[in-house]
């Protein structure tokens, strides 16, 4: 499965995603430059974490005008898989590819710490390989991760089952104490209606190797590969 990792000015988890895909998952991967208007032959586009354009104005507000984002929107509209992590999620929100917006954390401080995630859906390309009932331990690192949606958007998210990850306790209870940033309904990750675009604040690439203290992040990438292989198996390839 071929991956592309977008490099915006100020991205700083691009190399981390690249590393995990190439060295841990052993899949082909290439960088996609923000100034390019086309997406080459890849099966999944990753918008990595970082501080695109310094997060000046609002996180993701400037990056979403990059030429590559028009191509990403087209890629997504054609059913391509798009994974936005942290700043990548913020860019997807600013670009309107996912509903809602991010506010600064309720603590008004940057937070880098482990979180436990309850998986709300196992039928997405991003979660299909997660063992049922397993709470995932994946770290966050952000200042603006306090997810907000207006009541109408929120109803739609519920109706369409678009919430994929919620902050939870270790045993999977979604309670206020487990919410690290004030996110509405403990929301940590959502998909679009079609289910091919996921935005999540936690960083799966930071916990995909045992030496770093955890491997739960691998499930996200392995799900993508399993989904793609399944689809390839079904199709004419």
């Amino acid at each position: 499965m071929k991956f592309g990792v977008v490099v915006f000015p100020g991205s700083n988890c691009d190399a981390d995603c690249y590393w995990v895909i190439e060295r841990v998952l052993r899949q082909p991967v290439r960088y996609l430059w923000h100034g390019d208007g086309e997406i080459p032959d890849v099966d999944c586009v990753i918008l990595p974490g970082g501080f695109s354009y310094g997060d000046y104005l609002r996180a993701g507000a400037i990056a979403r005008f990059s030429p590559i984002m028009r191509a990403v929107a087209q890629f997504a509209a054609n059913g391509g898989l798009v994974l936005g992590i942290c700043n990548g999620f913020q860019i997807l929100l600013e670009a309107g590819l996912l509903p809602g917006a991010m506010r600064p954390n309720d603590s008004l401080r940057f937070r880098c710490c482990p979180t436990w995630l309850k998986v709300e859906r196992y039928d997405t390309p991003f979660t299909c390989a997660v063992p049922r009932g397993r709470t995932l331990r994946i770290p966050i690192a952000h200042f603006e991760g306090n997810y907000y949606a207006d009541p109408q958007q929120l109803r739609q998210l519920q109706r369409e089952r678009q919430v994929v990850f919620r902050y939870a306790t270790r045993d999977g209870r979604v309670v206020p104490e487990a919410n690290p940033n004030g996110s509405l309904d403990n929301i940590a990750g959502i998909v679009n209606r079609a289910g091919n675009v996921l935005g999540m604040m936690p960083h799966p690439e930071r916990c995909a190797e045992a030496v770093l203290g955890g491997e739960d992040g691998r499930y996200v990438f392995e799900s993508l590969i399993a989904y793609w292989q399944q689809k390839a198996g079904d199709g004419p390839r």
Binding site: A15, D16, V20, C112, A141, L212, G213
Partner: peptide
């Protein structure tokens, strides 16, 4: 000192083995 170091991204670059 976690009040301090939780405000720092101590994991980016995926090299931090001992936090």
């Amino acid at each position: 000192k976690s009040w301090v170091w939780e405000q720092y991204d101590h994991m980016v670059q995926v090299n931090t083995v001992v936090l």
